[in-house]
């Protein structure tokens, strides 16, 4: 039987829990029939199938087209009113859980992505011979998430070729060596601004995202003091109506 690969993007991937599957299908199966098979396997996809775009080998395919053996079929939602390109994914996450670097990479990778730059901060155990046992992170969650969204928008405005953007901040007790934060920027090519965008993202996060850390060592604990004092100029321009 012909074998095909199905690739899921963005919200579809969250439903299926996997970025890609390989399927055996009867010869002569159409795109429409393949979608029915996917629905049987992942019933939760049904409400997401409205307005979905299907491509075979990066060419848009209609439901009555026959799926050739060995085909790569991609499923995604187009940008509203735009052409058949998947909307660039944005991952904003404030979490007590361990940061899963591979999952973040998958969630911001699109068919057009060819370069992803990761910055991650980790808990330093030794600073000028001073020992840190662990850091205790605290956040103002609603505002932190709003400001992380704002940074993603600022990145896209400055580096229009940057596609997927992820900003993750971990909170709670974090021990030496643990990743505490992650900024990842995806783009078609490595010279499309992803390096600069990731650096901007972490610098900005340290300026305006309301998160604080307390350093705990052998001699007690102390809040780490920030230096930046944001003003209304750090707010996004108000939307024009």
């Amino acid at each position: 039987m012909p074998q095909v690969t199905v690739i899921f993007f963005a919200s579809l991937r969250q439903i299926t829990g996997t970025p890609r599957i390989t399927l055996e299908i009867p010869a002569g199966t159409t795109v429409g029939e393949l979608k029915q098979r996917l629905l049987q396997r992942y019933p939760d996809l049904e409400k997401s199938f409205q307005g979905i775009v299907t491509t075979i080998g990066e060419v848009t395919a209609t439901d009555d087209e026959i799926v050739p053996d060995g085909a790569e079929i991609a499923l995604f939602h187009p940008i509203a009113g735009g052409h058949a390109a998947p909307e660039p994914p944005t991952l904003i996450l404030l979490t007590e859980d361990e940061i899963d670097l591979t999952a973040v990479l998958q969630s911001i990778t699109q068919p057009t992505t060819g370069a992803v730059v990761f910055f991650t901060g980790v808990v330093r155990g030794l600073t000028h011979q001073q020992t840190t046992a662990y850091l205790e992170y605290e956040a103002y969650p609603a505002m932190a998430e709003a400001k992380m969204q704002q940074i993603a928008a600022e990145i896209r405005a400055r580096w229009p070729k940057v596609e997927g953007v992820a900003l993750v901040q971990r909170v709670g007790r974090l021990t030496v060596g643990a990743p505490t934060t992650l900024v990842a920027c995806a783009a078609p090519h490595r010279h499309d601004g992803a390096f600069e965008a990731a650096r901007y993202g972490i610098d900005r996060l340290k300026e305006i995202v309301p998160v604080w850390k307390k350093e705990v060592g052998p001699d007690g604990s102390a809040w780490v003091t920030g230096h930046y004092r944001p003003t209304p100029a750090d707010e996004p321009p108000s939307p024009t109506r």
Partner: peptide
């Protein structure tokens, strides 16, 4: 911060606003 936005000392307040006070941030 008022309703998740940064302020100056002139920013007006109403009792319904979500108001927060905190030190300069030190996350990352």
């Amino acid at each position: 911060a008022v309703n998740h936005a940064f302020t100056t000392d002139d920013t007006p307040l109403t009792p319904d606003d979500e108001i927060a006070a905190f030190p300069p941030v030190s996350g990352g």
